[in-house]
Design a protein around this nucleic acid. Sequence first.
DNA 1: TCTGTGCACATTTTT
DNA 2: TGTGCACAGA
Length: 768
Amino acid sequence: MEAILRGLTEAQREAVCHVEGPLLVLAGPGSGKTRVITHRIAYLLAQGIPASQILALTFTNKAAEEMRSRVQALAPGEPVWIGTFHRFCARLLRSYAPLVGLQENYTIYDAEDSARLLRRVLAELKMDLLRSTPETAATAISWAKNNLIRPEEYVSQPGHPLGRVIPEVYRAYHAALLAANAADFDDLLLHTAVLLRENPEIRQELDARYRFILIDEYQDTNLAQYAIARALSIDHPHLAVTGDPDQSIYGWRGANLNNILEFERDFPQVRVVRLEQNYRSTRRILRVAAELISHNIKRKQKDLYTENGLGRPVRLVCYPTHQDEARDIAEQIAQSVRSGQRRYRDFAVFYRINALSRTLELALRAAGVPYQLVHGVEFFQRKEIRDLLAYLRLLNNPRDEEAFLRAIQSPTRGVGKTTLDRLQQFARQEGVPLLEAVRRAEKIPTLDRRARAKLAEFAQLWDRLAQAAHRPVEEILGLVLSETGYRDQFDADTEEAQQRLANIEELLTACREFDEHYTGGNPLEDFLEQASLVSDTDPWEAEQDTVTLMTLHASKGLEFPVVYLIAVEQGLLPHERSRDNLDELEEERRLMFVGMTRAQEQLQISYARYRDFRGQRKMTIPSEFLLELPRAEMELVDLESAMRIGPGEDLSLETAEESTLGERTTGKKFPGSSSENRVAHLSGRPKLRTAAELAGQPPPPTISPDEFSHGMLVLHPQYGLGRIVALSGSGPQRRATVDFLAGAGRKKFLLHQSPLRPVQRNSNGPSQ
DNA sequence: TCTGTGCACATTTTT
DNA sequence: TGTGCACAGA
């Protein structure tokens, strides 16, 4: 007990020692949330609550893993069930599969399987998608499932571009899933929620079995997850949730912020604990982040504070181009490591979209800085892995159509589209799985002799494989490889082939490791479940001494001494797709908040005046979020100006106002490099945009003075982005006071002769 | 049935 | 710029 409570703050202790009844822990970034959860589990155990009555649910395997090992350290040997929502549901459904229309050996379809199935369904329905992509339909279906709307309950959504056709597509897609004895990720939750809703005695039994439920990252739950959590907390409402509404960045995946915002309404007896003290970041970083997030309307007010030191100012840097941005960051890092102040692993660079990593990679490589990119093609997404797993899946669930179609076409064996079409037609007519149709190939009149022979061959192959279905998985996979000659298709001379062959070896190793630790009675089924619910076989290596490059989304939950946040520009952050939706705009702001609060000691935010995007150079507009940051805690660096002060440079564009910005805008404060070598390393490149370059820009939209409004974002050719804070007069006399970003301060303009132009939010983002 | 080429398109992605 | 998909030809 001593060990469990030692070192906890008052607030943390309050949460840890809460035993019965609902609990809501609002935990700001870096406030020791995981610590509270794990210690609370240990505390419950110490109170004599059986481990089997405790259920801890997370969103990621990584979080579950972390929690498990920390609980293990505090309370060794206690078998508390800790895992992801999806895995919990998958387990439950194995026991109750028939009640939701599945068999217990059902297959879990991941995003790619689902997409392929949906595409097939769409092709079959010959639906006119009205210029929309299958993606749009997939999103609509996923949305419905996340909101517990079953196919038969789904009605056209007014306003949705595909409103009229979605119901039919949804129904057909869902029927196809059931026919394949498969569940997609959303189904795992939906089926479980429905199961609990429609079977009171099962719900009651599970409610009693899992009396103490803990849910992490509660702000990311969707309606289905919410329903499951509630259903298991009716008779025993000891539901403890932790989360931070300000870090909800998965709204687009169905997360419903209201679940946490309205938790207190759902459970009036709830005890609310706020963890507002931050142990991670400097005071300045925290203040800047807190100020940004305070601009969100939909949130619970939190007062973040820290006892950490003030720290350095948050740097806001304007670079001439994205290459300058990348090069400078690479140089800063290289220098910092060279001087012995830091290690590579102290640094992380975050960006909104993966496509932005390329320039950085080039610059880091040029500077000899080692880095790791977090994302890329995940192990289980690779074609050769999916191909081989398809065999295993089909062995486990002979009705799995996606697996069948994949297996029979790889390696290619003379069975093509035509044959498969005819096979499917026959299978549908007879109401049998495709694998069964293959066995009856002789009876399919539309098939020619050659096709029948090929199918018969496949049937024989299958008979040989099926004999091994209950063997250890490594053995099954080995047999698949030898019987199909799968490896033969790779010409070992190419690097790509080498890589693929190596991946196959890795899969064999994964199988072997699974077999070694496996104690259950159905290795194949359990291996497949694990394979489909675990994506991080290529994990981020925290131990490696390299710089980390990742998207803002991927950064959640991590921390680094030094963080760079790049390309903070309209259209990228906030992303243009969140343009006309306040909720989405707020999510973008949260995304930036999450990124900023990853930083422990130093934070640099940057944007570039020009950025190449999709092969074209575009002038950018700094992010509107930059206007929301408190200048007092920051250091503004405009490298565009700094660079112009080189020998032989044209200073003619420097205005009186710009010069008065004085030292604030010079490169002098730049740690790790003087303005001299800055100019040097940039020399040889055009410092000023040529007329031709500028001519390529779309003409600014002009509007009459009366159309400017209070609060409007405006762009000035020299001062950049600003916001109108005051207006007076009308017509030619109309004047505006504008607050500019980037140190230009507050200026007044006679609108009808000013070069100000309004910024439609994002309308001039780099991606247009 | 397989392979190459042109064209449209383009966030984020815990499971 | 880069990729993935559709369609055309061997």
